[in-house]
Design a protein around this nucleic acid. Structure first.
Lengths: 388, 388
DNA sequence: TGCTTGCCCTGTACCGGTACAGTAGCGGTT
DNA sequence: AACCGCTACTGTACCGGTACAGGGCAAGCA
């Protein structure tokens, strides 16, 4: 108990038992490398001396792997607010659990860049809804850490897991068209932080939308609408997880029942979105926004789906419980997590056999790229277009 | 490009530039230790050679800190399903972001104990709703890693952040009593995985409930109910995040309108919960369960609050949006996260000045222990007891 | 008896950095 | 000229482990 209590290390235990340091190491990390009897003796001595086990940092350095995978995501605030992101995280955690790997949430922000190049050791990384080219990602890539990109625009040869957002959105829009809707609104994100209605033409909106999912969904909606000659009214929904009705409010505010402009008249009016008759249906970026739209509709005395059809996206846990239950596009978030973790574990394993610090290129076969399907789930929030 | 491409390290760069290894290290980690001109030269050379920066594992070992804090939680599946846990995680992440520290989700499960003592390096840990005495926690504690316990039963001298669940629950129960309710149901978790009504006396239920929050809330409810001589009917809600109505269903199934037993008759009937008249009010462990209870009530044609009052707990994001809006007990999850991270950062800082591997005991002052208040939020889901 | 085999254990050589205590040079006092 | 205090860089000594290639020794086998 003197002041000179040096840190207890493998050596301390080795000396106490009278074996080599290596044997103590094996007692903890490779039980099959020594006799059971000696192992027990060592473990007892360790317990007695207060040795808790190999220091993870040192082990990580020596082994070249640390037992953790990183999650790179733009904003964690964001990630924990959105139900789909959260469920995705949960799926990852669930997949990782049996492997014993930890999940490290890496800060991508790098607030003051002056800060020391903070960097945490990981054996692999999942890049999720993260602006491509971020410095953290680049660093990991160059270091040869296996990365899996999820819901990201296709990068050069990188493992990727994506959802067929575009096809899902297309199906959603087609669903409305099949019901006879011709005046269709869109409420989506990624176009700015202030709610409002877009005057810009759709093509420009696509170009403006940087984030992957919003862009793909917009593309999908437009695929179907363009083919039908329908030009939608697009409203901006702020990236805000409580006021999910603001986009719908802007959309419905913009419609002037007195106006006679027919939005079916095609892409003629170059002025963009002008006040027109109220849409009879709304395509929403997410179920959360769709739910806000339902609230907004109710607040205005609009019946859903008689007066207004509403389509969501994701099929989150609430979609089936709203009133009316939400027609939406389902994505399998669990499958996404499974695929991501699976691919990552494969890549980590492959790296281990090949070379400890080998080049980041993958000479063998094409990079594994998964695209998960989406599926339209028709519920009660959509119905035939009302007679004009 | 030859096969002999050795790993690029500090030394590689040092040799290329013609300086000592230490100087290269400083160029990355302590820019003020060398002239700007040389630093630029070194950084350029590093870039050219493909050196990405100090290896985090090695740096962690040498520095004694890795730039990450751990989150120890019983089941991550659990943690990501519950909105309150999720928001707590978000709050932690938000607090951590400006510090540049990563958040590592440590697996507490240790499935096959035979697995190598998986252990990831962290500078500190937050223990959240985790069975006390878990091996991972114990290991970190003995290693001298600062830990903050959140929503955990008070441990021996450990930093702790708690919420005054008991007072909140007491207030909730008192609120019902003030409305004249005497037949009160409780739907809570932690009593088993099958929905049903408890026959055991309340005292035993308290003893059975191991998890901290469920126990404290139960204690709080009973504080008020006991004082009023009311004996509640307790229903078990499985720890299940989709079928949140099962507890309420069991509770309401158990009530037989024909029976004449009056639960106000005090703790006389030693047989425990017998079919009695339907409760006029329900105390729920969480808002999620309260929401399920609202659904169940509606499905049975019970009006809330005219026929049945419902109280939740937590004041989650949905509580204000249900129909009717939920009376609940608010806890400030953000404050909880802030307090936890604050205490942890203090402890980490304190450890650094004291000694790198000093004893885990804290000789100075009493351990910092925070208890955050709760607050009853009365909304529309509670009202006067109906006339019998 | 001699040779192989396999089990246990040990010695050496790293893993890739950082802390800390110098040392050299240099402009400026006294 | 001796002394001082700076700034800029260097050398050494770790940080606490693990991989891998032996080496001693008893059992198995011809």
């Amino acid at each position: 108990m003197g002041t000179g209590t040096r840190k207890v290390t493998l050596q301390t235990v080795a000396d106490a038992v009278g074996v080599s340091r290596m044997t103590v190491s094996n007692a903890f990390s490779r039980p099959d490398q020594l006799s059971e009897e000696l192992r027990v003796r060592i473990l007892d001595a360790a317990e007695r001396l207060g040795y808790v086990g190999p220091d993870p940092a040192a082990r990580g350095l020596a082994r070249g792997s640390v037992g953790a995978v990183g999650l790179l995501t733009a904003s964690l605030r964001h990630t924990f607010s959105d139900e789909i992101s959260t469920r995705f995280l949960g799926a990852i955690a669930r997949e990782l659990a049996p492997t014993g790997l930890a999940l490290t949430l890496l800060p991508t922000a790098e607030p003051a860049d002056a800060a020391p190049a903070w960097d945490v050791a990981v054996d692999g990384g999942i890049v999720y809804s993260c602006p491509p080219g971020s410095r953290s990602i680049e660093r990991l890539r160059r270091r040869g850490v296996p990365l899996v990109h999820v819901d990201q625009p296709p990068d050069d040869d990188a493992l990727a897991v994506n959802v067929d957002d575009r096809a899902g959105a297309r199906a959603a829009a087609q669903h409305l068209l099949d019901f006879g809707h011709r005046r269709i609104g869109i409420v989506t994100v990624g176009l700015g932080d202030r709610a409002g209605v877009e005057a810009r033409p759709p093509a420009e909106l696509v170009a403006t939308t940087a984030a992957h999912a919003p862009r793909q969904r917009l593309l999908g909606w437009l695929d179907a609408l363009d083919a039908a000659g329908v030009r939608p009214v697009v409203a901006r929904q702020p990236d805000n997880y409580v006021d999910t009705h603001l986009g719908a409010r802007a959309l419905l505010d913009a419609s002037d029942p007195a106006a006679s402009v027919d939005s079916v008249s095609g892409p003629a009016s170059a002025t963009g979105a002008v006040p027109g008759p109220r849409p009879t249906a709304v395509l929403c970026f997410s179920d959360a926004i769709a739910e806000g739209t339902l609230r907004e509709a109710r607040a205005r005395g609009l019946r859903v789906p008689q007066d207004l059809s509403v389509v969501g996206f994701d099929d989150n846990g609430l979609a089936g419980w709203t009133d009316p239950p939400l027609t939406t596009v389902r994505q399998d978030v669990d499958a996404k997590g499974r695929a991501a973790v699976g691919a990552l574990l494969d890549a980590i394993a492959a790296r281990r056999v090949r070379a400890p610090g080998s080049p980041p290129v993958r000479p063998d076969g094409p990079p594994r790229r998964v695209v998960l399907p989406t599926q339209l789930v028709a519920r009660g929030s959509t119905g035939p277009a009302p007679h004009a």
